[in-house]
Design a protein around this nucleic acid. Structure first.
Lengths: 115, 115
DNA sequence: CATACCTGCTAGCTTCTCTTTGCATGTGCG
DNA sequence: CGCACATGCAAAGAGAAGCTAGCAGGTATG
């Protein structure tokens, strides 16, 4: 998979929203150094597992992290997360281009239906 | 100045949060084409003035837009907004670096910045 | 078999964000 | 002078997001 070509409208909002949070920023930072499993990462970051789960899910929904369930040597099920390498560049012009593909929050959402 | 070299922790969160919203993305996009005054921009975007004000304030707080009060020919006070040209590049590594400068949300520490 | 790890989920509270509505102010024009 | 247009701010409700606490299940080790 490529490194985030240019997220279209809604995707951009989702990515930005997923990053606009101190905890999730820390999570990305931690995973950038090395992949980690949920419980270990929670301890490392000093937050609860439940909270970490929520944030991880949001990051995963934005496609920034991925999970892979693995079995440790001693039979424990470990869910390892890792960052998806990405390069996101934003300028007013790039944003202007992305906005063109924003879907309207109302009923119908046809790709390119207004203007 | 202020082409956002590499926003430190909290600034990054603020910038990301300010961009993580469809309305504000549209605002940036509109201002990227040309500067505009509040009422005119509100009509152009099809949103209420009050709502636009709030979003503009958030963008301004993040340093992405600036306002300049001007007097029109017919004496009306017009508040013109324009985007601040910026280039924001994000990668997991850059985020990891920014996280180092994140302030802890502990008890009191920010001088009068609480809502 | 109790303890210690690992995983996941949800109910419920709290807090923040978004949005509307309304008020207040100022200037120019018919 | 009232209408049209410009500015601003604040209260208040709805909704989304954040967080905690608790439950349930799995496998290994003492």
């Amino acid at each position: 998979m490529s490194s985030a070509p240019s997220p279209i409208g809604d995707d951009l909002v989702r990515v930005l929203a997923s990053l606009a949070n101190p905890h999730r920023l820390r999570i990305v930072a931690a995973l950038a150094r090395e992949r980690a499993y949920v419980s270990g990462l929670a301890r490392q970051l000093g937050i609860s597992r439940a909270l970490l789960q929520v944030h991880l899910r949001k990051l995963a929904a934005a496609g920034l992290v991925t999970a892979s369930l693995e079995l440790s040597e001693d039979g424990k099920a470990m869910n390892y997360y890792e960052v998806q390498p990405f390069v996101l560049t934003l300028t007013p012009e790039i944003i202007a281009a992305a906005v063109e593909t924003l879907t309207v929050p109302d009923s119908a959402e046809q790709p390119g239906a207004d203007r």
